[in-house]
Simulated assay, not measured.
Amino acid sequence: MKINTYRTILEQMWQKDKKCFAPDAEFPPLCLRCGKPLNRRLVVNALSRYADVHICEDCGMDEALRDACGQVLPMWEWYALSCGRDMNLHSDGPALTTICGFSHIYDGPQKPFPLNHLEHPASELVYSRSDYDGWRWWTTWHHGSEEPTEPELSEEIDQFTEALLQLPEFKTLDTMNRFCRANAQPTSDRTEFNLYAATEHFYIWLRMITRARDYNLYCHFYLKEPADDVGQME
C-alpha cells in the first residue's frame, strides 16, 4: 500500500512540470506554491524546503522567512492544491488529508471498548497507540470487540500502519513535528494535530501529538458502511 501526502502529490505534479525544462523552458509552468510563472531557467528557481519541487524565487524567499519564525504556509494552501489541479494523480493509494469526510460517525451510536470505559463510535473496530522513544516507534493495539477480526480487515489495517510508519515524515518525532506544521489540521493545542484517510473498508483518523515522552500517534480505524465511498483528498 502506498500512502499519499500533500508532499507526494506536489512531487508528482512537479515531475510532470519539470519536463518543460531542458534545461530552459520556452513556456515555463506555474509555480506550484503561488501560481505565478516560474523562471524559464530551471536553476534560477528555488528548491522548496518542504517538498522536492522547484518554486519561484519569491516563494523561496517567503518560505525561508516563514520557516525561520515557525509560520509555515500549509501545503494544502499551495496554489496547485487549492485550485484542484491534477488531483487524479494520487488515485493509486489512500491520501492523508486535513478534511474529515466521515464526521457523521461521531454523532451516531457509541460503544465502550473492552477494558475501556470511554465511548467510541460504534463503527470503530480497533485503534493503535504509539510512542517514539528516541530510537523507534512502540505500538499497542486496542480492539473494539473480543471477537477475532476478519483476516481481510486485519491485513488492510496492517498494510496501512506499515506504510504510514515507513513514510519519511514519520521517521522520528522531529520529522513528524515538522510534517504536522505544514500538512496537518491544527487544534486548540499547538502540539496536537489531526489527519484523515480512507481505505477500501475503513475511515481512518490520525491524532498526532508532538510532545516528547507522551503517546505521539493514535490511529483509529472505523468500518465503512457498504454504501460508503472511499474519501478523496480535496
Rank of each mutant, 00 (worst) to 15 (best):
H201G: 04
T175V: 09
L223A: 12
Y196D: 00
D214E: 13
L165P: 08
T187C: 00
I209L: 13
T175C: 06
Y203N: 05
T191I: 12
E225G: 05
A182P: 09
E147L: 13
E152R: 14
T210Y: 00
D214T: 15
T149W: 03
E147T: 09
Y215T: 13
D158V: 12
L206S: 08
K171Q: 14
L223N: 12
T199P: 01
Y203V: 00
Y222G: 01
E192K: 15
D174A: 11
Y215C: 12
T210C: 07
S188V: 06
E152Q: 15
Y196C: 02
M208R: 04
R178P: 00
P151D: 10
R178F: 01
A197K: 02
L173I: 12
P148R: 10
N177L: 10
A182G: 13
R207C: 14
R178S: 08
D158A: 15
W205N: 11
P151Y: 02
N177E: 02
D214L: 12
F221C: 07
P226M: 10
E162A: 13
R190G: 09
L173E: 09
L195A: 05
E200W: 05
E156Q: 10
A182H: 04
R211E: 08
N177C: 05
F160P: 02
E156G: 03
C180L: 04
E169F: 09
H201Y: 11
T191Y: 15
E150I: 11
L223T: 07
F202W: 00
E156S: 06
T161N: 12
A212R: 14
M176T: 05
T175E: 06
F202C: 05
T172G: 05
C180E: 01
F170S: 08
F193N: 03
E150D: 13
N183I: 08
E147N: 09
E200H: 09
K224S: 01
W205Q: 11
L206A: 00
P226D: 08
Q159R: 13
E156T: 10
D189K: 15
H201N: 12
E200I: 04
F221S: 04
L153E: 09
A197G: 02
R181E: 03
T161S: 14
T191R: 15
A197P: 10
P151S: 03
A163V: 07
R213A: 15
F160T: 01
A182F: 02
L165S: 00
D158C: 11
P186G: 09
C219D: 03
T172D: 03
I204L: 09
E200Q: 09
P168Q: 03
L195V: 01
L206F: 15
C180Q: 08
P186D: 08
F170K: 10
L217C: 05
L217M: 10
A198M: 01
A163M: 10
P151C: 06
L164V: 01
